[in-house]
């Protein structure tokens, strides 16, 4: 019994580590999607809406088909569709991609709530997790190291995207389109098509992030499932300097901040928990203020990007 305070003391960092892995997955997928989109020279603020729509579609499809993986597929499809709409609308002359993102964010959330009403009660199958904590006796360690498959897929994807940008023809094409439309056109690349495809693929990733929310953690569909994770992921890409591997690190950092509130609550600290839940937003704002600059474009920013000019 004398060791009880120790367990409580360790509880917070352990819960935060486990929480960081659990909470970071949607951040990771949305930020990789946004990274891909922005590398092609476009901003998609609508990924918050795509995330919520993906959460609803994923949950609904998993419930109807009985397969969590079909749910993930449906969420990716919904995300692709939404990304494509963003891409098509932004293709039009004089259309502002930031404003379009806001509109699609509201539309995505609206559609998700509209079609999601019947899925608030029923229980859909969960995504599987791998128990990396099997060696430990402690239930806290076991919970913390229970890692979802999608998190691992996200890590692999981050590395794969980084390799793609650095070493493949597709990656080079996307980077050229993102850095200079003129140069891309001179090379004979169809910039509009590349941007459209990158935006649609980015939407698909955000949709998968949403499916993770509803199918694993928190693991149910409701209208409060995401409050700004998609948007924070967009800010996170700026902080990660448009580098997919750094997106992974940043997502873990944000996941840790997001896990602070629940971790403190799990050891019985409930005072001011609304403020702890606000920690990730404050962290994002702090990082934005610290890393932005009024006079020069950020290092690593794609040249055609409307938020870094």
């Amino acid at each position: 019994m004398a060791s009880m305070p120790d367990v409580d003391l360790w509880g917070v960092p352990l819960a935060m580590l486990g929480g960081a892995i659990r909470v970071s997955t949607p951040f990771l997928f949305v930020s990789l999607g946004e990274c891909l989109t922005e590398r092609a020279g476009r901003v998609n603020l609508g990924l918050e809406g795509t995330l919520v729509l993906g959460a609803m579609t994923g949950y609904g499809a998993a419930y109807e088909t009985g397969s969590a993986w079909l749910g993930v597929g449906a969420a990716a499809l919904a995300g692709t569709l939404f990304g494509a709409v963003h891409g098509v609308v932004c293709r039009l002359p004089r259309v502002n991609d930031i404003a379009t993102g806001i509109a699609l964010m509201l539309l995505g959330i609206g559609l998700a709530f509209f079609f999601g009403k019947p899925y608030i009660q029923p229980v859909a199958p969960d995504l599987p997790a791998i128990p990396f904590g099997w060696w430990s006796e402690s239930p806290q360690v076991r919970t913390a190291l229970n890692v979802n498959v999608l998190f691992l897929a996200g890590c692999a994807l981050a590395v794969a995207l980084a390799w793609m940008f650095r070493a493949t023809r597709i990656g080079l094409t996307i980077r050229v389109v993102g850095d200079s439309s003129d140069a891309a056109r001179a090379m004979g690349v169809r910039t509009h098509t590349v941007r459209l495809l990158a935006t649609a693929a980015g939407g698909a990733l955000a949709g998968v992030g949403g499916a993770y929310l509803s199918l694993y953690y928190p693991g149910s569909w409701n209208e409060g499932i995401s409050s700004g994770q998609g948007l924070m992921a967009v800010a996170l890409v700026i902080f990660a300097r448009w580098n997919p591997v750094r997106c992974l690190g940043a997502a873990l950092l944000f996941g840790g901040a997001g896990a602070l509130g629940p971790a403190l609550q799990s050891v019985g600290i409930t005072q001011g928990y609304h403020l702890f839940y606000a920690a990730p937003y404050v962290l994002t704002l702090g990082l934005l203020v610290a890393t932005s600059s009024p006079t020069r474009a950020l290092a690593g920013a794609p040249g055609e990007l409307s938020i870094s000019r």
Binding site: V85, R94, A99, T100, L107
Partner: peptide
């Protein structure tokens, strides 16, 4: 209809308005 109906309506009008900018 669910209460989000108005949200869907607003979202569609919003996208339409922004796409309309292209006509100026």
């Amino acid at each position: 209809l669910p209460d989000a109906t108005v949200l869907v309506l607003q979202g569609m009008v919003f996208v339409s308005i922004l796409a309309g900018e292209a006509l100026h």
